[in-house]
Design a protein around this nucleic acid. Structure first.
Lengths: 339, 339
DNA sequence: CTGAAAGCGCTTACAG
DNA sequence: CTGAAAGCGCTTACAG
C-alpha cells in the first residue's frame, strides 16, 4: 500500500493538516515546515488517494461521455474535442459506448457510477423525450444530437433542418434537378434523419422541384455499406438521380464507392454531398463536399453548460443552443482539389 | 444531496449493515427485512456513493487508456475494443490523449489520478524504456505498441518486423521490383517505424532485391497528408517505384489520393499496401490491401494481463505477447472488389 | 440473520 | 502558522 497523509505527518513530525496544506498548495506554511514535509512526501513517494479526496470534497473531477460508438469517425472526432475541452477545465472523461441501443442508453441515464461522475454528456439515439425527462438520477447532464429538443436538459446541436437545406440547395445551385436523399428512416426513426429529410424537402420545395418518392427510399443505418447499396439502387432506376444528399459522411463515402463500383462518375454523373466533415472525406477520391459542424464549439459549449450546473446552477431552465456549421465545397460536387 | 445508507437504514428501521447487505445482493436476508429495505431504497431514490465504496474497497473499477489520439482511426478502433473488453470485466475506461508528446506521456506515467484507476493501458510514442522502468507510481500497467520491449511491464503487440515483411513480400510476389517505403523515420524516431523498416529491408534482401535509398526517404508523421506528399515525390523520381509499402493505413490512403492527383493508376502504375486495417481502407477507391492486426485480441490480452496484476500478481516477470495479424488483399494491389 | 463500531484517507471548520 | 478532531459514505470483521 502507498503512504497516507498520516504516514507522511508522522515522518515529518507535523500534523496531518499541515501535510494536507502542503499537498494542496496552501500559502501559509513556514518554509522550514514546508521543506520538512516535502522531504517526507518524497521519501515515502506519497500519492493522494483520490477516492478519499472525492468522498470528502463531494466531487470527482470526472465526467462521462456517452455516445453510440467510438470508432465512427464523427464521434471519434467529437470525443477528441470533448476530452480536450474537459481537460482545460481539469476534468477527465469516462467513455460509455451505447451502440445507440435503448437498454444501454437507459443504463446511462439511470446513473451508472452514481456520485462518481460530476456530469454527463449524452448523445442519445434510441431513448425518447419522456424517458429523458423522467430520469431520477440528478447528475448534471448535457444532451447532444437530434433526438430530443426542449428537453429536460441543456442541449447543444447544429440546426439540422438548415444544414440539410443548405446541402440540398448547393446541389440545386449546380443545376441538378433529380436530387436523391440517402439516410431516410421510418417516421419513428432517428430524429437526425427526420430533420435532415425535412431540410431536404424544404429546399426542393423552395427550388420548385417535385418530390420523387423513388429518390427518397429508406435505409437502415448511417454506415458506409448502406451508402453503397443505396446509390446502386438509385442509379439503376429507370430515371436515375443526378445528385444525392447523404445524411452523413459515411453514407456519402459509401455512395462514392458504390458509384465507382458500377462505373458512374462523381460528380459528372452524380454529385454527392454529406454531413459531418470527417477527415476521410478530405482525402477520398473524389474529396467529399459536406456540411462541417463546429465540433470544437459543440464540445466547448457542452462543457460550459455542464460546469455551470455542477457549480450549482441546477434549477435554471434548460438551455437550447445551436452550434455553427458551414458548407465545404469539394470535388464530389465539382469543387476543386484540396490545395 | 442524495440519501445515504444511513438515511435508508433509519427509514427502514434496520441497521446500516443490513441495508448494505441488500444493496450488495448478500444472500442471507429475510424476505421481510429485504422488502422493507427495498421499499426505503426506492422511496429515497438511493444511489451508492462510489467514491466511498472505492475508498473502502481499495479499488475503483476504473482503468485508464492512454493513447496518442482518439480521432486516428486505428486508435479509435482499438479504444472501442478496449472499452468493450473492459466492460466485460466490469471496468470502465478513462481516456488520456497524449498526442504522443513526451510531457503528456510522462504525466500519465507519473500517475495522474493516483489510486483512482486500478490499472493503466498505455500506448507510448515518445517516452523511452528507461523512463518507463524508472516510474515510481505502481499502478498496474500494460504497454501497447512498439516503443518498448522487454520492458518494465506487460507488453502486447504484433510482430511488426514479420508484418512488414509479409506486406513487402506480397508486393514482391506480384512481380513488383522497385518497392518504396513510406513512413521511415530518423534512427532515433518511433520504434514502430524502425521495426517496419526492418521487415521491409529483410523482405527485399530475401527476394534478392537491391535497396534503393531514393525509395526510402524519411517522412514526418503517420497521417494522410504525408502519404500524399511522399507518393508524389516518389512518382516524380527519374526511376519511380512500381509499388509502395506504407507504414500505416493513413499514409497508404494518402498515397492513393496522391497517386490519383497526379494521374497515376493504382495498382497498375503503383501498387500500395498499408498496415492497420482501418475501416476507411475497406471502402476507399481503390480498396486498400493491408495487414490486419487482431485488435480485439490485443484488447482482450491487455485486460487479461491488467486483471491478473490488479488481482495481486504484481511481482511476476513482465510478459511479452504477440497478437495475431493477417494480410488482407484488396484492390490497391490487384485484389478483387469487396463482395 | 442482524447490529454496533471501526476505519478506509482525506478535508475542513474550530481552536489556539 | 499549526494541531486535534469530526465526518464524508461505505464495507467488514466481530458479536450475538
Amino acid at each position: 500500500m502507498g503512504a497516507s497523509l498520516r504516514d507522511v505527518a508522522l515522518r515529518a513530525g507535523v500534523s496531518v493538516k499541515t501535510v494536507s496544506n502542503v499537498v494542496n498548495g496552501y500559502e501559509h506554511v513556514t518554509p522550514t515546515t514546508r521543506s520538512k514535509v516535502e522531504a517526507a512526501l518524497k521519501e515515502l513517494n506519497y500519492r493522494p488517494n483520490l477516492s478519499a479526496r472525492n468522498l470528502r470534497r463531494g466531487k470527482s473531477g470526472i465526467i462521462a461521455l456517452a455516445l453510440p460508438e467510438l470508432d465512427s469517425p464523427y464521434f471519434a472526432e467529437l470525443a477528441r474535442s470533448v476530452i480536450r475541452a474537459a481537460e482545460e477545465r481539469g476534468y477527465t472523461v469516462l467513455i460509455d459506448q451505447t451502440d445507440g441501443r435503448l437498454e444501454r442508453e437507459r443504463h446511462v441515464l439511470a446513473g451508472i457510477r452514481p456520485q462518481l461522475v460530476d456530469g454527463l454528456i449524452v448523445s442519445p439515439l434510441s431513448v425518447g423525450r419522456e424517458e429523458l425527462a423522467a430520469r431520477t438520477d440528478n447528475t448534471p447532464m448535457v444532451l447532444l444530437g437530434e433526438t430530443v429538443f426542449e428537453g429536460p436538459a441543456d442541449h447543444v446541436a447544429i440546426d439540422n433542418v438548415a444544414a440539410a437545406g443548405i446541402a440540398t440547395e448547393h446541389l440545386v445551385a449546380l443545376g441538378r434537378r433529380r436530387i436523391a436523399a440517402i439516410g431516410v428512416q421510418p417516421p419513428d426513426g432517428q430524429g437526425t434523419a427526420r430533420l435532415r429529410l425535412q431540410g431536404y424537402l424544404d429546399a426542393l420545395s423552395t427550388a420548385g422541384l417535385p418530390v420523387d418518392e423513388d429518390l427518397i427510399q429508406q435505409g437502415a443505418t448511417f454506415h458506409r455499406a448502406d451508402g453503397i447499396q443505396a446509390v446502386k439502387d438509385l442509379l439503376s432506376l429507370p430515371e436515375p438521380p443526378d445528385a444525392v444528399f447523404c445524411f452523413n459522411d459515411l453514407l456519402a463515402l459509401g455512395a462514392i464507392r458504390g458509384a465507382y463500383e458500377i462505373g458512374a462518375r462523381v460528380p459528372d454523373d452524380i454529385a454527392i454531398v454529406g454531413i459531418d466533415d470527417i477527415e476521410d472525406g478530405r482525402f477520398s477520391t473524389p474529396t467529399l463536399t459536406t456540411i462541417s459542424p463546429d465540433k470544437e464549439q459543440i464540445a466547448r459549449l457542452s462543457l460550459e453548460f455542464l460546469q455551470s450546473r455542477i457549480d450549482g446552477d441546477r434549477d435554471a431552465p434548460p438551455r437550447e443552443v445551436q452550434a455553427d456549421f458551414r458548407l465545404m465545397e469539394r470535388e464530389s460536387t465539382g469543387g476543386r482539389t484540396a490545395e
